[in-house]
């Protein structure tokens, strides 16, 4: 198996942090600001940042549509925070995103800023028994103005929960987290995504 090629959507947000974590997890990394840069990718991370900003920057070059098309052809996707919002099939309190194309494909209902303002941001230790390696150490998850998953479809598998709410989920070739695994030195989720991306590699 060759090294998976994974892109990081680089319109705005925590791009360098994801790139660093992906390299540590053994991927070949590039940044994506244009549809042509999606060619040949086995996976794409849509990072945290402001979903409103990303949706507006993507619109003139039809980047969200191109990501959806590449995903249908086999490219894996991992959305964190704003990235998860852009992948969710349904968003509550989404006025600021109305009229803008999103990626979609993840059968969840998400509420933006579900925990409140920055004063409500927090760090919580998550149990992640299902991740490769079976490491019992909790994953320190950084939640920043995080979205809340209000409900999920039957095909969505819960990978981690915080206070009985799902905060990391997988549906086929889509991985999503409402927190920021790129901000901590624990790269287990990135490793998991690199593995998912490698499974999809078409020679």
């Amino acid at each position: 198996m060759s090294t998976p090629r994974i892109g990081v959507l680089a319109l705005q947000g925590a791009v360098a942090e994801h790139a660093r974590a992906l390299r540590a997890a053994g991927a070949e990394v590039s940044t994506v600001r244009r549809p042509s840069e999606l060619q040949g990718l086995d996976g794409l991370i849509v990072p945290g940042g402001e979903s409103t900003t990303m949706a507006r920057l993507a619109a003139p070059v039809r980047l969200m549509e191109s990501i959806r098309e590449r995903h249908a052809e086999g490219m894996a996707m991992f959305g964190t925070c704003a990235g998860m919002i852009l992948m969710a099939d349904q968003i509550l309190d989404a006025e600021a995103l109305n009229g803008f194309e999103r990626i979609g494909g993840l059968d969840v209902v998400v509420r933006r800023n579900g925990y409140g303002s920055q004063l409500e941001s927090f760090i919580g230790p998550l149990q992640v028994p299902g991740l490769p390696g079976d490491d019992p150490t909790p994953l320190e998850a950084v939640f920043i103005r995080a979205p809340v998953i209000e409900s999920l479809g039957v095909d969505v598998e819960v990978i981690a929960s915080w206070q009985d709410r799902p905060v990391a989920v997988r549906q086929g070739r889509i991985l999503a987290a409402s927190f920021h695994p790129e901000l901590t030195p624990d790269h287990r989720l990135h490793q998991y995504f690199v593995e998912i991306s490698a499974e999809q590699t078409v020679s």
Binding site: A10, L11, Q12, G13, A14, V15, A16, E17, G48, G49, E50, T53, C81, A82, Q118, S121, F122, I123, E140, V142, F143, I144, R145, H180, L183, T184, P185
Partner: peptide
């Protein structure tokens, strides 16, 4: 202890982290 950017500062990972989310903006 969880922040790799705020090691020697009084700032916390949730607070330096919000600034990281604003990058490129």
């Amino acid at each position: 202890s969880t922040s790799h950017t705020a090691a020697a500062t009084g700032a916390t990972a949730v607070n330096t982290g919000l600034a990281q989310m604003l990058k490129g903006g």
